[in-house]
């Protein structure tokens, strides 16, 4: 049973979305030998599973459009229209139009608006300053957003690279273990063969003496 603060399997399967939680697990793995070994076992199992490679599809799939069965362009447009979000927009617009017509027909005529006595003075410099401030603010927000996005991408690439390296290391471990075992098996077979040969030679020598 793992003593990790969060499920080690969730961490291994990239299902811990919170970076804080991932960091906690990583810190724990660095000091806990049991969890470190458990994570290694999971990586080895994954590496073994990946020895089964994807196969190419034996026959490519493609559909051919047959003009006989195709609906006319008008029907296709209508079908596309009624199956899209435009349908909702069209219905909303129609309802709004009806509501406006009803409102206009039933509403009493409005009283004439009072004539303004004075004209407000427009300060052009003030408006320009406000526009400039708003533009600066928007530019800063965009820059901040791009910075955050870049950092996020760099972190994601680093994580992926780390994972691939781990997987590759685990794959090499699996292969080296396998080859080592095969070598040991060959050596044992060779020793047995040599032992058998020696005994046969001894028997031959004894036979010659007799």
């Amino acid at each position: 049973m793992s003593c990790s603060p969060f499920d080690l399997r969730d961490y291994f399967l990239q299902e811990l979305a919170d970076p804080q939680q991932r960091r906690q697990v990583e810190s724990h793995i660095a000091i806990c030998r049991t969890c470190h070994e458990e994570l290694d076992r999971l990586h080895m199992t994954e590496a073994a599973l990946f020895t089964l490679r994807e196969e190419e599809i034996p026959q490519r799939i493609a559909f051919v459009s047959d003009k006989v069965f195709e609906p006319s362009p008008l029907r296709r447009w209508l079908a596309g229209f009624w199956n899209s979000s435009a349908r909702l927009g069209f219905a909303s617009a129609a309802m709004l139009s009806v509501a406006l017509v009803v409102f206009a027909a039933t509403r009493p005529a409005p009283a004439p608006a009072p004539v303004p006595t004075a004209t407000a003075t427009v300060n052009t410099a003030d408006i320009e300053q406000r526009v400039q401030t708003a533009v600066d603010k928007a530019a800063q927000a965009i820059e901040a957003r791009y910075d955050a996005k870049t950092t996020q991408l760099v972190n994601a690439i680093r994580q992926k690279d780390l994972r691939e390296r781990r997987l590759m290391t685990a794959s090499f471990d699996v292969q080296s273990n396998y080859l080592e075992h095969r070598l040991q098996g060959s050596e044992t077979a060779l020793r047995t063969l040599r032992g058998g040969l020696t005994q046969a030679q001894l028997r031959d020598a004894e036979g010659e003496k007799q």
Partner: peptide, 13 residues
């Protein structure tokens, strides 16, 4: 799978 594949990983086939 860990149990099934452990002998392969540790000892080879």
């Amino acid at each position: 799978l860990k149990v099934e594949l452990a002998p392969i990983q540790a000892r080879g086939l």
